[in-house]
Amino acid sequence: MRHIISILLENEPGALSRVVGLFSQRNFNIETLNVAPTEDPSLSRLTVTTVGDDRVIEQITKHLNKLIDVVKLVDLTEGNHIERELMLVKVKALGAARDEVKRTVDIFRAQIVDVTPSLYTVQITGDAAKLDAFLQAMAPVGILEVARTGVSGIARGDKVLSL
């Protein structure tokens, strides 16, 4: 099963490499990885999506917790949560396809953020499934380039991941 693990990490040199290294060292999967500083400059928030059965996920969280630079973590998929990813896509937009692309962008509530005579650059946010669906819809038109941020997430309700 797919899990979204959010980590508060010491904003120290090398901290990220310890997290990433752990995954390769112990043969765990990383599907997406997203990291940026938080409102507290001493902390980064790192969100990783990974796949594994309960035993593997338990090992992943335990080993992450063992890293000295990991301050706190939560498996967001254990409860209700909000999951978002941002994607920028360059698609071909020529002739009749130009209108078709525009319509599809509207259906997905995406935005065209840059235009040339032959292509659109589309910005879209949502969960990973929505982004996948948009790419599928665009495939016949011609996708030129894709940049995805990887999943970021936060728990619904009163639950807060902080010190």
Binding site: P13, G14, S17, R18, G21, Q25, I68
Partner: peptide
């Protein structure tokens, strides 16, 4: 050496 030893230390400092 911090990179080389990363998987075989409890922790490391620079």
């Amino acid at each position: 050496i911090v990179g080389v030893t990363r998987p075989i230390v409890k922790h490391s400092f620079s």
